[in-house]
Structure formats: structure tokens, C-alpha cells
């Protein structure tokens, strides 16, 4: 796994040698790579018994706007703030 891949997840291991349960990332990848099972089946994408689940097109307020904004680590004037993107 390259640094580029880690960047994809916006993750860095704080200590690259850190391991828990003795199984570090390379062991997990080895497990994935070492076993190459065969199957002739199509991918099963959905496990629930449901199909065609839709809802009526009706608008209503959640009445939770203030609560949601109050969870943001940084917010002002009703906007959630982040460092400048451009």
C-alpha cells in the first residue's frame, strides 16, 4: 500500500510500526492476497429481502437545524466553517 493510497483515506499511522493483536496491515493484506477462492456465481449485491423501497415526495422540516449546527467544531453565522478550499 502506497502513501498515495493512505492519502486517499486521509489517514496516517501515527507510528508505522504500531500493531495491535500482532497483526499489522501487511498481515491483513497477506491474508487477502494469499487466498484466492474460486466461484462461478454473480456478485450478490444486496442481502435484504426488500425491493423497490421508495417514499412519498413530501417536504417537512427536521426541526433539528440548530442542534445539527451546534455539533460542528467550527461554525459561524449559520455556516459550518473549514479552512479555505480555494
Amino acid at each position: 500500500m502506497t502513501d498515495q493510497d493512505k492519502r486517499l483515506y486521509r489517514l496516517t499511522m501515527l507510528d508505522p510500526n504500531e500493531s495491535s493483536h500482532g497483526a499489522d496491515l501487511s498481515e491483513a493484506i497477506d491474508f487477502i492476497n494469499s487466498y484466492s477462492p474460486d466461484t462461478a456465481f454473480e456478485p450478490c449485491v444486496h442481502i435484504s429481502d426488500q425491493r423497490n423501497v421508495t417514499r412519498q415526495d413530501e417536504a417537512h422540516s427536521s426541526h433539528l437545524q440548530k442542534e445539527i449546527l451546534s455539533l460542528a467544531p467550527k461554525a459561524a453565522d449559520d455556516y459550518v466553517l473549514v479552512p479555505k478550499t480555494v
Binding site: D5, R10, L11, T12, S20, A23, V82, P83
Partner: peptide, 23 residues
Amino acid sequence: LYTKSRSEGFGTEVKRRLLLGGY
């Protein structure tokens, strides 16, 4: 902000699984 929040906020096992998932 993204990288530090996630790297500092998640434990090792979680990070391991996330990277495996991306892989």
C-alpha cells in the same frame, strides 16, 4: 484538518481496516 482529525481520532485497528477496505 482531514488527515490529522482522522489519524488522531481513530485507533490503530480501525485505521488498519479502513486502509484494507480502500485497498
